[in-house]
């Protein structure tokens, strides 16, 4: 084996794993800065301030 193929696999996997880790840590950090909304999950209601987007 030439080593190029393995390098390709390694680059792809490392990038995906580090991107995933960065997403999860950023999400945790943001959640910690926010007061708990009462429930465990986040609510998908539009955040306040967007009320002008709602259709009557």
């Amino acid at each position: 084996m030439s080593g190029y193929t393995e390098a390709g696999y390694a680059i792809v996997l490392c990038t995906l794993v580090s991107y995933a880790v960065s997403l999860v840590t950023r999400e945790r950090a943001t959640r910690r800065r926010l007061p708990p909304p009462g429930s465990t999950g986040i609510d998908l209601q539009p955040p306040r301030g967007h009320s002008n987007l709602e259709r009557p």
Partner: peptide, 15 residues
């Protein structure tokens, strides 16, 4: 996950 992060960030900005 990226979507949830965006929603959280949005709420953070509002609060």
């Amino acid at each position: 996950h990226r979507y949830r992060l965006a929603v959280l960030r949005d709420r953070e900005g509002d609060e």
